[in-house]
């Protein structure tokens, strides 16, 4: 998927997938002040984004985003649908490379280097910045194979006839890894007696936790979650939310949600995107929900629009 082609067929792409919608009512034109998005926090920034712009053809989907994401915490991205929050999330592990019409400019620094540099190694990048999708997407394989898929592809685990013959079978290591990942994702107790079963037989909530476990198995540092509970029922949702809070002790979690209560419950800091692909305000979650600086953000979180 070469990037040279990103501007081809742009019109049809944007029209068939309205990724950005400028027509939400209630939008008032209000200056965005830099200090609203300059979030001060203690500790290190895991990812720092500067002057990030995304275009779908002529559509300017994300405008001049500057944002520092602190490590080992939960950052929530909220905003009305079509505000570009999912697009933004997918910029952080370069999953937007898959969308041929998208053009991405700017910097996303991870470990002090821009991941959009020409010499970036996508394999290593995505291994260390994992992602969980909106609807659960387990592979049509056994639960065990789902977990060990990533490590196998990276050559960290090697099983099978050849490995056994050559005496470097990692079967035991695989079992340990599967158990650890499933336990971290709070799924072990439910599936430990049927690791060989097809993952598609699990319930929706279990499938999503399996996807989280699958992501943890590659030993990531950052986990990106794109509305991970939106396709689930309330009980499964609360399990995922508990899990996210636990994960933030060890990992940097960035989660997109359209559910403001959820953002309030699980996140340490919240970034509000509003229509037009702008980051309007970014601060401690408490501050955002109790005393936002921007009038538009206040309108949005009090339900006046969006």
């Amino acid at each position: 998927m070469s990037k040279t082609d990103t501007d081809s067929r742009s019109d049809t792409q944007t029209e068939s997938q309205p990724l950005v919608d400028h027509t939400v009512e209630g939008e008032t034109s209000e200056e965005i002040r830099d200090e609203w998005t300059n979030y001060d926090f203690d500790g290190e920034a895991k990812l720092s984004v500067s002057e990030l712009n995304v275009y779908y053809g002529d559509d300017h989907a994300l405008k001049d985003i500057d944002m520092e994401i602190p490590e080992q915490s939960v950052t929530a991205l909220i905003g009305p649908s079509g505000c570009g929050k999912s697009t933004y999330l997918r910029c952080l592990n370069r999953m937007n490379d898959r969308i041929k019409a998208a053009r991405i400019e700017g910097n996303v620094e991870f470990e002090g280097k821009n991941i959009y540099d020409a010499d970036a190694n996508l394999v290593e990048l995505r291994k260390r910045i994992g992602m969980v999708f909106q609807s659960p997407n387990p592979f049509p394989k056994s639960i065990r194979d789902n977990i060990s898929y990533g490590p196998r592809k990276h050559g960290d685990i090697d099983t099978g006839l050849l490995a056994r013959v050559l005496g470097r079978d990692d079967g035991e290591r695989e079992e340990r890894l599967v158990e650890r990942s499933l336990k971290q994702a709070a799924l072990w107790d439910e599936v430990n007696d049927r690791l060989g079963d097809n993952a598609l037989g699990l319930s929706g909530g279990q499938q999503q936790r399996l996807c989280i476990a699958r992501c943890l198995a590659t030993d990531p540092e950052v986990i990106l979650m794109d509305e991970p509970a939106s396709a689930l029922d309330p009980i499964a949702t609360s399990k995922i939310e508990d899990l996210i809070e636990e994960l933030s002790e060890e990992y940097t979690v960035v989660v997109v949600t359209h559910n403001m209560q959820q953002a309030q419950r699980i996140s340490d800091q919240t970034a509000v995107f509003l229509t037009g692909g702008e980051l309007v305000e970014y601060d401690d979650t408490e501050k955002i929900f109790s005393d936002p600086e921007s009038q538009r953000v206040e309108d949005y979180i009090t339900g006046k629009f969006g």
């Binding site: 592990n93 995505r126 990533g150 592809k153």
Partner: peptide
């Protein structure tokens, strides 16, 4: 979505 799931784990195309 299945393909994205694999790519997001760092598998190559």
């Amino acid at each position: 979505s299945m393909k994205s799931g694999s790519l997001a784990l760092g598998a190559t195309d």
